[in-house]
Design a protein around this nucleic acid. Structure first.
Length: 149
DNA sequence: ATGGACGTATGT
DNA sequence: ACATACGTCCAT
């Protein structure tokens, strides 16, 4: 795998944008994972790619790992909504008062995403940006983002 | 519909 | 090992 250029900007090669469904995105992710296992340098290079911002570290991208039990894996708080930004437990909601047996986060801190049933969330498509050099036919990296309807 | 209990995934 | 809190089941 080629080395990415380090820095805040993507390398000046072509950027190819397209969308794929979640299943295709998983295949791409598995392919990347298999490359990591077969190349001794791959882990190091992967880190460089991440530092260069070429691979998405978004929660959804992480969730593409091991897609077999995607449905079973616990979701994580988004970290950006108002409830997530609350640092302190209110101490007076039912969840706070029932902390020991209830094992639930303070109601004021409950992430907006996690309030929804998983069945209410539908990933419509996955946007991919490929960074590549078409003179060499080399892909330097990609980013992944999802849209949810 | 709402809340309580609990197993256990997840991160440290 | 331990704390947190998600997912699920059950009662109301």
């Amino acid at each position: 795998m080629p080395r990415p250029r380090v820095g805040p900007c993507p390398p000046p090669e072509n950027i190819y944008e397209f969308s794929m469904d979640a299943e295709e995105a998983q295949s791409l992710h598995f392919y990347r994972k298999s490359l990591e296992k077969t190349s001794p340098l791959s882990k190091y290079i992967e880190t460089e790619h991440q530092q260069a911002g070429l691979f998405s570290l978004s929660p959804f991208d992480a969730s593409l790992d091991d897609g077999a039990d995607l449905q079973k894996r616990r979701r994580k708080k988004c970290g950006k909504c108002v409830p997530c930004l609350h640092r302190e437990n209110c101490g007076s909601c039912l969840n706070c008062l029932n902390r020991r047996t209830g094992k639930q986060i303070c109601k004021l801190r409950k992430c907006d995403q996690l309030k929804k049933r998983r069945s209410e969330l539908e990933v419509s498509e996955v946007q991919i940006r490929l960074f590549y050099d078409n003179t060499k036919g080399v892909v330097y990296g990609y980013t992944v983002s999802t849209s949810i309807v």
